[in-house]
């Protein structure tokens, strides 16, 4: 058996895709066994799971781009927060048309990400530090914009009383399900962003440069790759996906919470790493991240339909992250 594993022909057996897929299958089988009186066998359960992971998945898309360059983005949760607050503010208080609100939110996310990227590449500061700073700054910005309040449909009037305004239609649309209630709009948005990331990584020159920078930044620079610009772009793309996630989050909660997205960066990183993209950079891909998203999503869902308490859920999730990463380390 060890003979077989060592021979080059069996390399697909040890490839990260096979491993992540294997882990997903195991989780899925567990779900089939502990199916909570058939709850796991209903499409609605899967649809709800997909809906629940979509916001995290959006963050994981950007995180994948950044991690492939050998960096990390700790600011994703905070940028989500700014975006959620701004979107609510624009739609509910300013009554802007939804498309303008969306565009401005995307630009805010893009700008935050680009700022991290510029600090990292221009001043040669470690991504961990630069995005940690952005994480703190953006959270502050979200609280400042919102005045520390949740931006909801209860709008304070001039005389100090609150009056409920109707929910903006765009909130309801994003929060709805389509195809005869079979799939959530947020899931569709996530899948579209996933596809964009996949194309970017596999088909565009930019994608090749991301891998090259993560693999060997100095070799890439000496080969004429515009390293600094590409890095800024990677963080800007991450910021953009965070803004999309923030819009989805605001729509789902029907409000803009300045605390939205708190600690989400850790889930996003976990999803990328469980998928098999290495934190070292240079290897991995968005397909792996999708598998990571599904593994965590199913795990949470199975635990929740079986009414496992949050305490045990967190402990189990922690253990499983270690297990999944160990599984990938066995490759020499």
């Amino acid at each position: 058996m060890s003979q077989l594993l060592k021979s080059p022909k069996s390399s697909w057996l040890t490839s990260p895709t096979t491993r992540a897929l294997g882990a997903l299958v195991i989780v899925f089988v567990i779900g089939l066994i502990f199916n909570a009186d058939g709850a796991f066998l209903k499409w609605g359960t899967h649809r709800d799971m997909l809906r629940a992971v979509s916001v995290y998945g959006l963050l994981a898309c950007g995180m994948t781009l950044v991690i492939i360059t050998g960096g990390i983005d700790l600011s994703v949760g905070s940028i989500l927060g700014i975006s959620a607050v701004s979107f609510s503010l624009f739609c509910i208080h300013f009554s802007w048309p939804f498309y303008i609100a969306i565009i401005v939110c995307l630009l805010i996310g893009l700008a935050c990400g680009a700022a991290s990227g510029l600090i990292i590449s221009r001043f040669n500061i470690q991504p961990f530090i630069a995005t940690l700073a952005m994480m703190v700054f953006a959270r502050g910005l979200a609280k400042w914009i919102s005045g520390g309040q949740k931006i909801s449909t209860a709008v304070q009037q001039a005389d100090g009383t609150y009056e409920y305004v109707p929910e903006p239609a765009v909130f309801n649309f994003i929060n709805s399900k389509i195809l005869w209630d079979n799939i959530s709009v947020v899931t569709v948005i996530f899948l579209v962003c996933l596809l964009i990331t996949a194309i970017l990584l596999a088909k565009l020159r930019l994608g090749r440069y991301l891998y090259a920078i993560g693999g060997n930044e100095e070799a890439a620079r000496l080969s004429g790759v515009p390293v600094n610009a590409i890095k800024v772009l990677a963080y800007a793309m991450s910021g953009l996906f965070c803004a999309v996630a923030g819009i989805c989050q605001a729509s789902q909660e029907l409000q803009g919470d300045p605390e939205a997205g708190f600690t989400y960066e850790l889930s996003a990183i976990a999803m990328v790493v469980i998928g098999g993209t290495t934190l070292r950079g240079g290897r991995g891909g968005i397909g792996l991240t999708l598998l990571g998203v599904l593994i965590i999503g199913y795990l949470e869902k199975i635990l929740s339909i079986n009414a496992v308490g949050e305490d045990k859920r967190l402990m189990l999730t922690g253990a499983i992250i270690v297990g999944a990463v160990l599984l990938q380390k066995t490759k020499k």
Binding site: R208, Y211, A212, G215, A219, S223, G282
Partner: peptide
């Protein structure tokens, strides 16, 4: 090893790294 090759890329990807614009149409490879 330090600054010539990208070990995480394959032979083709390393070979074209410095002349990639010649093997792409606009942004597409």
């Amino acid at each position: 090893k330090t600054n010539g090759l990208v070990m995480d890329l394959n032979i083709i990807e390393n070979a074209t790294l410095a002349s990639l614009p010649a093997y792409s149409r606009r942004l597409w490879l």
